[in-house]
Amino acid sequence: MFKKALCQSHLSRTLLVLLALLTVTGCGKNAAGPVTAPIPVKVVVVNMFEIGEDEGDTAGEFQLWKERQQLSQRFAFPQSHHDLFLNPETGVLGMVTGMGTNKSASAVMALGLDPRFDLSKAYWLVAGISGFDPADASIGSAAWAEWLVDGDLMHEIDSRELPEDWSTGIFPLFSKGPYPEKRPPNLGEVFRINGDLTEWAYQLTKDTELGDDATIAENRQAFTDFPNAQRKPFVLKGDNLAGMTFWHGDYLNRWANRWVDYWTEGQGRFVSSAMEDTGTAQSLLYLDRAGRADYDRLMVLRTASNFTVPHPGMTAAESLLSEGEDYAGLQLSLESAYRVGSRVVDTLVEGWETYRDQMPYAVEAVQGE
């Protein structure tokens, strides 16, 4: 009796595994259709969230991409946050990872291991909103990052319990206090992506005309101590701090600048604060090792929906609570992400016969000789 039950248990587990494989490989009831060979993908657009429906209502990060890039072919993706959408004519694939490094890492890993797609030549474009340091840019601006720094892997002591000679209670793992001269081993605190590709994307898009908003234009004039915050939205290069905690305020903004400077050994500059990009980079690094993706083809574009410090005349608490769930610059920043990011995507697709096997910056270097 026990042996029979055990066999039935093994059979049930086997059937479950087979059903899962059928779903992933395109044979399940929710699949986009039978797949005989992996679909070659040219560009993966990585968004982090959507609001409501994917089309026809208030836009989140994904909606403009889905509509304007005509991502019409749906692929069930039950092993992650959100289904995948492909334009079968252009080879552009859109994904929504969910918010936070845990979801971005797991979603990118799940896609990278999905047998329905050939991602060996794919470029990856992260396109999302974030908080910006007003010292660097204005609401609606777009920043290309080369350095991605993690804001979670650390020791922390509450500021009310700091030793008198400590400048902060936040300091690296496996260290004896704030900012030791000898950096501890990198456990995922910092990722450097392909600087040549980042520079190429920046040069391609730096003169992109970004939208503006009358209310935001009026409000930015109050940032008299921050000339860059008073500018119309523009494209720049600047690096990203990724952390699961939505932090805000002058003191934490100073920490963010120093933390990025520390882990990049002075080569990076904090501009944008978000939650996911180190998770995306970590998974792509592992997928690269496995021959499933090319880490050197990752690009990260963040646009400013809000600032990381209070508006003049407001406390950090007042500023955070006023912006917490309804960023004044949300729609402007989403439009900027698409205008800037789509120039890169369209250029890669149009020149795919060349860019499939050669990086665009390498092609331009040869043409310039």
Rank of each mutant, 00 (worst) to 15 (best):
A110E: 02
A105V: 14
R292V: 07
R116P: 15
E181N: 15
E353T: 02
G52S: 08
Q70M: 11
Q73P: 12
H248C: 03
R160E: 14
P185A: 15
T198L: 06
D165N: 12
A362R: 10
A222Q: 08
W124G: 06
M48E: 08
S138R: 03
N30Q: 14
Y338A: 03
L111E: 01
D152L: 06
G279L: 10
W166R: 05
T280W: 07
A328C: 07
D212W: 00
Q358L: 07
S104C: 12
D277Y: 02
E161Y: 12
S106A: 10
V340K: 02
L197T: 05
L210P: 09
R160G: 04
A304G: 02
D152C: 08
Q8W: 10
S167K: 14
P115T: 04
L86M: 03
W255L: 15
Y202N: 06
M314G: 07
G266P: 11
T58N: 12
E218T: 06
M275V: 00
D133E: 13
D114K: 00
V260K: 04
P78N: 09
D261P: 13
T168M: 10
N240Q: 11
A337K: 01
E276L: 04
T14C: 15
G151H: 05
T208N: 06
P172I: 14
G131M: 03
V108L: 13
Q367I: 05
L236T: 15
L84S: 05
A293C: 07
Q282A: 15
D213G: 04
D114N: 07
W259C: 11
T90R: 01
Y338N: 00
E164F: 15
Q267F: 11
G329M: 02
L111T: 02
P360H: 05
